[in-house]
Every structure is written in C-alpha cells, then in structure tokens.
Design a protein around this nucleic acid. Structure first.
Lengths: 251, 251
DNA sequence: ACAATAGTGTCTATAAGACAATATCAT
DNA sequence: ATGATATTGTCTTATAGACACTATTGT
C-alpha cells in the first residue's frame, strides 16, 4: 500500500432536481411548459469573509454524505432539508470521481436526479429563503457559469432525464393524476421536437391507443379549453419498446 | 443524535455479470444463445470450520468497498480480481439497504451490472479456480436458492438488462465488432419473444434500415451459413425511441 | 441433389402523417 | 358570432407481418 492508494477527501451527493414550470396559464388554454433544473448560487465569500471556492458560480444542490447513510439517502435528506420536499422519484445516475474535479481535494460525487411536480415545488418556494436558488430552463442551463465539473454532470443528467421522460412513464411525476392530452403533450414537448408528439391531432389520437394510459371514463375538465376535455391517467402497465422494432412489448 | 442514527456495519458492491453463452455452434449454423448470469456458491463452512452465513446458497459476486474507493471502483476491482476481466460496461443500478437484508448486521449494497462478451469470458475460465463459480441461464436463475436479498437484486438486474439490451445499443458488448443479422437476432432473442425480432426475414430486412447499424460494405462471413452472409457493425448513432410514437428520434 | 441459411418479391392490414371539417362553449 | 381548443373524417404514404420464392454452397 504505497501512494498507489489515496484517501478521498470527501464523499458527496449531488442532485439534479427537475421540475416543470408552466410559463403562461390563461384560462381555457393549454399550458406552455418548460423543464427546469434547480440550481443554487455558491456564496462569493464564506462566513469568515474569505473568498469561497468556485464562489459566485451556479451549482447543483447537494452536500456531504453523512456517516450514517448512503449517497441516495443523503440525496433524499439534503433535498428535504433544502426544499422541504419528500421526493418520490430520486434516482442515482452516475459517479464523478476524477481526481482534479474539485481543487479542494479528491471529492467523489454521487449524482442523482429527482423529478418533482410543479405542485410540490410550490411548497418549496414557501420553505426556502429564495436567496440563491433558481430554476433554469434546461435549454439555458449550459450557458451559465457552472462550478466544478457540474457542466458535465448536468449534461449527463439532461441526457438521462430526456430518455427517462420519453422511454418510460416518468412523465406521470410531472402531471396531476388526471390530465388532458395537451398537458401530457406540453410536458413531452419540453424534451423533444418529434413532430409526432408536437402535432395536436396526431397526439390526441395516439393517446387513446397507448397501453399505459387509460381514459378516465366520463370525466372531463375545462382547464385547457372552453370545450370539455377528456381526462386520462397512467395505469400500471410498464412498457419496453425495443429500438429494433415498431411494436410494443409489455414486460 | 440518539438511536435514530445507526452506523452501517458494511458497505459492499455487488455485481450482476451478464454474458452470452453460445449453446451449440455447428459450422455454417446460426448460433443458439442464452443470456447467463455469473453466480458464486457461498462456502458452507468458513476457514475455522464454522457454519457460514447463508452458506451453500448462490450469490452475486462482490465484496466490501475499500476505504480508498467508491462502490463502482470496488465493483470493477472485484470483478478484475475474481475473473481477470477489465470490464468495459459496468453500471450502477441500485442500492439495497434494508436493515434486515443481511443478518450479520446493516450491510448496504451498491448493485451494478456488467456486460461481458463470450470472448472475454473465456479468459476468465482460464483465471479462476472454477470451483464455486457458475453461469446460470437467466430463465433458470430464480429457481436457485439465493443468499440474502439477492433474489430481489437479481430481479431488478434482469429488468434493467432487458431494457438496456432492447432500448439501447448495449447488445454491441455481447457481439464481435462485425456480426451478421442472425447473430444479433440470437442475442436479442435471449431477452424477448417479440415476433418482429424472432422472425428471420423481417429482422433481416429491418437491420438494413436501423440508423445505428451499418453495413460493412463488401464484407461477408460464412460462419453462420454456407452462403456468404453480410456483416454489419454498430455505428455511433445514439437513438431514443419514445414510447409515445412510432418513429425514431436521434439525440 | 440435398439441406440449411441468406435474402427478395409481393400482398395485406395497420399505422403514421397531413389536411380538413366539425363540435363545443365562455366571451 | 367569434375565437380558441378538442375531436373526428378521410386520404395518402410508409411500415409491419406473412408467405412464397430464389440464391448460394458444403456435404
């Protein structure tokens, strides 16, 4: 055991918190949504008045893993502490442990992503001190000055969230239990330009044949239109759609 | 900090090692493959002659995370130590930390899966002592008596590997660089019964239109047929196929 | 010639994409 | 009535699935 081995100087959990922001919501109008990532601004100076490492830059929320927990637990705990949210969809997606990623030492980060509904987010805005926290549209986030290697982590997170939203039923975490086709469409359009999803009529037809979505029989809403609109909900069907074929396959 | 907090008694990395086994390989015949999981048999007695915890049962390879590494690194290291393989496709997929999962104490496991080609596997068989290691067809693995909560971990791993093989180009890790349609088909058929994949002619046609697979111009082989057969290779195109539509979308 | 596998021709049913028309209803 | 959104009608084109057929070649 010579210098071949080195003790990490820290073990952290970072969290890419994704949420939907409804841009405008006139009555009787389908929503215009954007997928946003929650970032915090690192303080320029610490409490002793010294310049902070990577101060002034934007970063993912997170913190050190406690001695009594694993990284996922730490991620859940930190999110709870910082935003008051009990997360329902927190998942690990990567480990970042390049020796030079943090100039304070060898800090290993377990990266997670969380999907939080707009509704739950509103609770947060009540809880936090709102000072250095902001939601950034995922299309703008890479323009910011980001701390450490968070640019890389965020790139990976974006890639994962896009895949998750399009290839699984994860979108249900961003919607109310019962939703209209245009609301689901608005969520999906935040991560895809696929004309098959963007096209109104095509999507309104398609939703009726998706095995993992079912009509809420006889239930409608007027929140997106003056005309009463059919409500749908996700059922428990899990679907794996192979890239090699055109048909569904249930698990 | 009362008894609300508890120190874990161990932090381990477990690895679900998946590999292809070609069942029969007559010359000029397409392969008949099965996806197998590598398991080890826990010794009945330890070196002091005492009964071992969960002895005699089958378990995923793995071991304790060292003080100088994270779980992923530990997984790679353990796999290297136990089989001599430098893994190219090792990924974290879950954390198992139920208090009662191991009756020796609170042992937290980071679960990973690895995809290893048959070729690389052959090196392993040279390296290990072959005593208590075996490859089990994924369709039989849940029949075995499994240690700890490895039944649950394996269930999750199977679910992940199936999705990975069908929804990403991960199958490339199980094939040679250049392969025939029937070889790819054989790999995929280990995890799906989808008739669109199982049907010879349909698949032979389909492969030509897949954006992430390209013809190796003018190159053929006779290893699966007396008739010279076209070779294909994966290119670098990454594809996300939404469950909501029927068309491809490149990233 | 035979057996086995690769690959093509072609038909049909279904789905996708485009465009238009109709329905509903607060204002 | 108007304007906005939902929903259906219908036409065209593309793809999937099925089946039959041809091509190649070691034995």
């Amino acid at each position: 055991m010579t210098k071949k081995y080195r003790t990490p100087d820290g073990y952290t959990a970072d969290i890419a918190v994704f949420t939907i922001v409804t841009e405008e919501s006139k009555p009787f109008t389908p929503p215009d949504m954007s997928l946003n990532l929650l970032l915090i601004e690192r303080a320029k100076w610490n409490t002793e008045g010294e310049l902070n490492t990577e101060g002034g830059k934007w970063a993912l929320p997170g913190g050190f893993v406690g001695v009594h927990e694993n990284a996922l637990q730490a991620a859940v705990r930190e999110l709870k502490e910082e935003t008051g949210i009990d997360c329902v969809h927190m998942k690990h997606f990567g480990i970042y442990d390049e020796p030079g990623r943090d100039n304070r030492g060898w800090i290993i980060s377990n990266a997670h992503y969380a999907i939080i509904s707009e509704e739950d987010l509103r609770e947060m805005n009540a809880n936090d001190d709102a000072s250095a926290v902001k939601l950034v549209n995922i299309h703008d986030v890479l323009q910011l000055e980001l701390a450490f290697d968070h640019r890389q982590i965020i790139c990976d997170a974006l890639s994962v969230i896009k895949r998750e939203l399009l290839q699984t039923t994860a979108a249900k975490n961003l919607l109310q239990d019962e939703f209209t086709y245009s609301e689901l469409q608005a969520v999906l359009s935040t991560v895809t330009k696929d004309p098959a999803i963007l096209n109104e009529q095509a999507f309104a037809r398609k939703i009726k044949s998706l095995p993992f979505i079912e009509k809420v029989e006889g239930k409608t809403t007027q929140r997106t239109s003056k005309k009463a609109t059919q409500l749908y909900r996700f059922n428990e069907v899990e679907v794996v759609k192979p890239i090699y074929t055109g048909r569904y396959q249930e698990r």
